[in-house]
Amino acid sequence: MTTELMNEIQNGVNVQALLDARTALEAAPEAAKFTWRAQCEWLDGVHSRTSISGFFGLGEDKTRPSAHVVETDHPAEFAAPDAAATPVEVVLSGLAGCLTAGVAAVAENRGVKLRSVSASVEADMDIAGILGIDADVRNGFSAIRVEFDIDADASSEDIAALVAQSQKRSAVFDILTNPTAVHVSTTGQK
């Protein structure tokens, strides 16, 4: 029953390919080890451009046909030209994109036809932290809220279960909710 539904792609996610990859990688655990990369160049002021092209995965370096570019800047309230979104907003877009992709993939796997999915994301920040006004205030978000509005052929419980399963398997949700060791080093000074 589920097989029929999976073969008939509804939401545009090739779940069968993902399930096949899971089976293959269970047998070849080294191939599952990926390294993601991004290359950032400072442009001017607080404006930077990050290009994203290669990554390591399935045992080898991969290069995309063309690089993706993400720019970051800051709005006028931070005395900047607002040439692009702030880095923290790009983080929110990463969370929303990851959870939304998860909803679509889980829905596909469960045979749920999605008509529309939208996610509103909000994050609170006290900038007394980044401005060094109050040492007790952290730099980052104090809370993030994601609100999904999903129209699909499913009960509200089933839709809630899609969102729950998406969180369970979301890389960005994990990155934001659990600590990660971050190592920053410097090279290039002549």
């Binding site: 419980e157 809630a160 279960a161 729950a164 969180q167 369970k168 949700f173 994990d174 934001l176 909710t177 659990n178």
Partner: peptide, 12 residues
């Protein structure tokens, strides 16, 4: 910070 998700998943 994923507590709410796990509680909701258990309730579901």
């Amino acid at each position: 910070g994923g507590l709410a998700h796990l509680c909701q998943a258990a309730d579901l």
